[in-house]
Design a protein around this nucleic acid. Structure first.
Length: 324
DNA sequence: CATCAGGGCCCTG
DNA sequence: CAGGGCCCTGAT
C-alpha cells in the first residue's frame, strides 16, 4: 500500500529565470493529461519531488513584477531544511523547469516566423519542463503506450495506490511515484495484477536498471545527447516515441525529434499544411529546414498553443484526434 | 454478445 | 525493416 506523509515545515525559494520567460507556459502544459501527481489550483502548481531519500512538497506560483520575472517555490518538508538541501532543491528546480535556458536564438526566429508568430506572442519564454525525474517520467511513458488516456490514468492510479507515496501539505494531497528500489522484491506478476498488462515487465526491468545503477540520471546529465539517447533507448520498453519526449522534456534538447506518432503527425500536419495527412517524414524534413536546432521547441509552441485554444473553444478537427 | 483499436515497443523472419 | 502480438477497456 502507498505510504502517507504529512509535511509541516515550510520555507520559500525564489528563483529568477533567464529571459524571455513565461510562467504559465512553463508550469502548465495544456497537452498533458491530469493525474494525481500534479495538481493545479487557483494559480498554484502542487507536486512532490524526491531528492536523495527525502521527499518535499512544492507549491509553485508566479512572483513576477512589471520589470522582472520570478518564480516562487514554497517547499514543505518533514524537518527544517539545511542550507545544503535548499541548494540542492534549488538546482534541481532550475534543471527541471529549465530556468536558465538560453532561448534567445529561438525568440529571434519565432517572432518573425509566419507559422510561429501567433503562438510565440502568446507563450514567449515558455520552455520544456518536467515535474518528474527521468525514472518517474519513464513510468509515465510506459503507462501511455498503446492505450487511451483514460486507461493510462487508471494504470497510474493503481500503481500509485500500491507503491506510491501520498504527501499532504497546505491542505492538498498529491502522489509521488515510488523509488525504483521499492520494486526490488516485487515480481512482474505482482505488478501485472494491477492490470497494467504487458507493461509490467517494462516497469520491473526499468526499475531494476535504476535500482542497480546501470543507469543514473545525474550521470546522464553530464553526457552528450547522443549518449543519452543510446543509453535510455537501451532500456526495455523505451522506443522512438518515448525517447523524443524524454530528450525534449527531461534533457531539454530543443532540436531533438526524429519521429512522430500518427496522431501527432496529423495534428502537426494540420498546423503546418492545413491538411491531416502529410507524412511524418515530410514533416520532419520541413521542420528541420525551417527551424533547425530549434525544431522541437517550435513544434512544442504550436502544440501547446493549439491545446490551449482547444480548452477555450472546441476545435472539431482536433477533437477527432484526441480520445479521452 | 463479439470485435476492435488505442497518446508503442519488442521480437521475429 | 515490415508486421504480428501484446494486456486491458470502452466504444461500436
Amino acid at each position: 500500500m502507498s505510504r502517507n506523509i504529512k509535511l509541516r515545515t515550510k520555507c520559500k525559494i525564489v528563483i529568477t529565470p533567464s529571459t524571455p520567460f513565461n510562467f504559465a507556459g512553463t508550469f502548465w502544459k495544456p497537452s498533458h493529461y491530469q493525474s494525481k501527481l500534479v495538481l493545479y489550483n487557483a494559480g498554484f502548481v502542487y507536486h512532490g519531488i524526491r531528492i536523495g531519500r527525502e521527499v518535499y512538497g512544492l507549491k509553485i506560483s508566479d512572483g513576477s513584477s512589471q520589470n522582472e520575472s520570478k518564480v516562487v517555490f514554497e517547499i514543505w518538508s518533514k524537518e527544517k531544511l539545511s542550507d545544503r538541501e535548499k541548494k540542492d532543491i534549488s538546482a534541481e528546480l532550475v534543471w527541471r523547469y529549465d530556468l536558465n535556458a538560453d532561448i534567445k536564438g529561438f525568440a529571434l526566429i519565432a517572432s518573425k516566423d509566419e507559422i510561429l508568430t501567433d503562438a510565440y506572442k502568446r507563450w514567449a519564454g515558455m520552455r520544456p519542463s518536467i515535474a518528474y525525474s527521468l525514472y518517474e517520467f519513464l513510468m509515465v511513458t510506459i503507462t501511455l503506450q498503446n492505450t487511451t488516456v483514460r486507461r493510462s490514468v487508471q494504470m497510474m492510479d493503481s500503481l500509485l495506490q500500491n507503491y506510491g507515496t501520498c504527501i499532504e501539505y497546505d491542505n492538498v494531497k498529491v502522489y509521488l511515484i515510488w523509488q525504483p528500489t521499492r520494486l526490488n522484491r516485487v515480481t512482474e506478476e505482482d505488478i501485472r495484477l494491477l492490470k497494467v498488462g504487458y507493461r509490467a515487465r517494462m516497469i520491473k526491468r526499468i526499475s531494476d536498471s535504476f535500482s542497480n545503477k546501470e543507469i543514473d540520471e545525474n550521470d546522464l546529465r553530464e553526457k552528450s545527447i547522443c549518449d543519452v539517447r543510446n543509453e535510455v533507448l537501451a532500456l526495455y520498453g523505451v522506443g522512438p516515441q518515448s525517447i523524443n519526449y524524454i530528450l525534449f522534456e527531461v534533457f531539454k534538447c530543443y532540436g531533438c525529434v526524429n519521429h512522430f506518432s500518427p496522431w501527432e503527425a496529423k495534428i502537426i500536419s494540420m498546423l503546418l499544411f492545413g491538411n491531416k495527412d502529410t507524412s511524418a517524414e515530410i514533416i520532419l524534413e520541413t521542420i528541420e529546414r525551417r527551424w533547425g536546432v530549434w525544431k522541437m521547441l517550435a513544434v512544442h509552441y504550436l502544440f501547446e498553443d493549439i491545446f490551449w485554444r482547444r480548452s477555450n473553444d472546441p476545435i472539431p478537427w482536433l477533437d477527432d484526434e484526441i480520445r479521452d
